[in-house]
Write a protein that binds this DNA or RNA. Structure first.
Lengths: 317, 317
DNA sequence: TCATATTATGTAAGTTCTTACGTAATGTAA
DNA sequence: TTACATTACGTAAGAACTTACATAATATGA
């Protein structure tokens, strides 16, 4: 049994790479058949230039053929050396290198066009012999991956697998949860900002400052171990989602989202008509999560935290 | 319009490469999600080892995963350094390096298996969303290419394109054909062997020695220019296909085959009941052509040519 | 208008394979 | 048993990209 049959669709990447290598080898032989002094990897550059009246810049070619500009730069250098094209600075923008086919190339075009008609036909006929439409299938898969990367698809599986091991519980006094609450928050704050006075006081006295004031602190457990936390703070008659922190090791399991939903649910139970939060726009994943939870950006009173530059709110009614 | 739409199926190799690169990138992100200290390209080696009780040699792994042994050697070195596997010399054959998973790896297996179940499922579900079956299509195309490489398919197109420009004519006395007959033959003989006395005499006096004895000399013209030749020699009541030569520049156009068929046709017209030829087994493409024309190996009288080590015959009746 | 982005490019260096090559161990034919 | 071929392997070097970086030319915003 071959490796690919054993390992199944998981190895689709390797399988595609291997098949593309087969085509590359074939291309080399085909070029030698037509007897051009022409490196197959030059083809894409040559092709887009042959379809342009004006000449193209390095960057334009790179975008069209979806290589890096560096790659194009190297290919163009080699092709200029072989006399296939010429390059000169643009008169209007001296940064730009305008690349054109040489006369030698133009003369070759009809023969090269013959070649790629032949290759195109041969490929078409081969594909037509198959029952499944590879060309179409490739387009579909490209599209599906664009819509939702494989990473996201796998992440869902990963989360579903982790889900049964995750519990959300209220802070358990005297169990070390208060300390974990502080540690988790200190860790993430230090990762991005400096710890402020306001932080320290709240983190050192969570039960007095948050819970006794009518708020709640939830702990996320993964396989029984505390890996995340989030608070619902009750102050001046308003409800704030705050102090959300998930440990490094437990990232990607969707724990933040579970904590967020639990806090919102708790706020609803407490009769809150809305929940707000304060954050910073540099925290892209956090903002994305808040948005996913339904929070919308609002303007509001100045925050006591220096690091806050955005306020978001979720209506519950 | 994207490059691939413009250039069409001809660029299928590039398209496959690009898609495989997408999967490779995704794989990297997925590995980091599962938080192994594990390079994605290690996976195939790891996989085949995890399915082997005994441990495997470098070469065995290379064959199974269809990499070069050098690549496996490098990967194994890196994985040993990272503590994922161990290698030791085989007691029975000191050339062989037996590679086994380390205990660290064995311990990781269940988690890794979880990962590739997740990935496999995600890929399967994604593929199922498409109407065309990419996995199946890949298999079909792999099979089609194995049956008949793209090179051969393109070569047919190439030949069909050249065909209208090819003519087969009888040697035209006084037109330079006799000289071309000699030059073409001298060129190919010198490429493989040394020119013998027998050669020189025949090549210098083709009309007297071959044609006046009842034989024929055919010339292949490509766009009006002589590019190949082949003789039908009549001697001792037997007919011999000999002196087939096609110029370097005109190779791949199927000219040899056209000449061969023309000579056979001519022999038939002359009432021959069979045609023989003498050649050398080191001339693989020539022998393949003769076989394609219907010639079969026979034992026969010793040849006057030193370079001949095979005699073939085609029955015409 | 002047400091600060942004853009276009080429070069260097890295990645991840491959082929080429040298060496040691085995096989094999005379 | 000896000379030659074959096999297994590791290292080096090459191929064909990429990313990272440096530099020069433009754009832009206060």
């Amino acid at each position: 049994m071959s490796f690919f049959e054993q390992v199944g669709t998981m190895a689709i990447g390797s399988r595609l790479r291997r098949l593309s290598a087969v085509f590359t080898d074939e291309a080399r032989r085909i070029y030698s058949l037509y007897d051009f002094d022409f490196d197959p990897r030059w083809f894409p550059v040559f092709y887009v230039l042959s379809h342009s009246e004006e000449g193209l810049s390095t960057t334009e070619i790179a975008q069209q053929i979806e290589h890096s500009h560096a790659s194009v730069s190297q290919i163009v250098k080699a092709m200029c050396a072989a006399g296939w094209m010429s390059s000169e600075r643009d008169a209007r923008d001296a940064r730009v290198n305008v690349i054109r086919l040489s006369e030698k190339s133009e003369a070759l075009l009809p023969r090269l066009r013959e070649q790629y008609e032949d290759v195109g036909q041969a490929v078409d006929e081969m594909l037509a012999e198959a029952h499944s439409d590879l060309w179409h299938a490739l387009g579909e898969v490209e599209h599906l991956l664009e819509e939702k990367p494989l990473y996201s698809r796998v992440k869902e599986k990963y989360r579903a697998r982790a889900l049964p091991d995750i519990e959300i519980v209220d802070l358990r006094p005297g169990s070390g949860d208060a300390e974990a609450f502080k540690d988790l928050n200190m860790d993430w704050i230090r990762g991005y900002f400096v710890v402020e006075e306001t932080d320290l006081y709240q983190l050192d006295h969570p039960e007095e400052v948050i819970i006794e004031a009518g708020g709640h602190i939830l702990m996320a457990l993964y396989k029984g171990e505390v890996v995340g936390t989030c608070a619902l703070i009750h102050e001046h008659g308003q409800w704030e989602l705050a102090k959300m922190a998930v440990g490094d090791r437990a990232r990607g399991k969707g724990i933040g989202e579970l904590l967020g939903r639990a806090v919102i649910e708790r706020a609803r139970e407490c009769g809150a008509s809305s929940v707000f939060l304060e954050s910073n726009t540099i925290l892209k994943p956090a903002i994305a999560l808040y948005r996913k939870l339904g929070f919308k950006r609002v303007t509001g009173p100045p925050s006591p935290y220096e690091r806050s530059n955005i306020r978001m709110e979720l209506k519950l009614t």
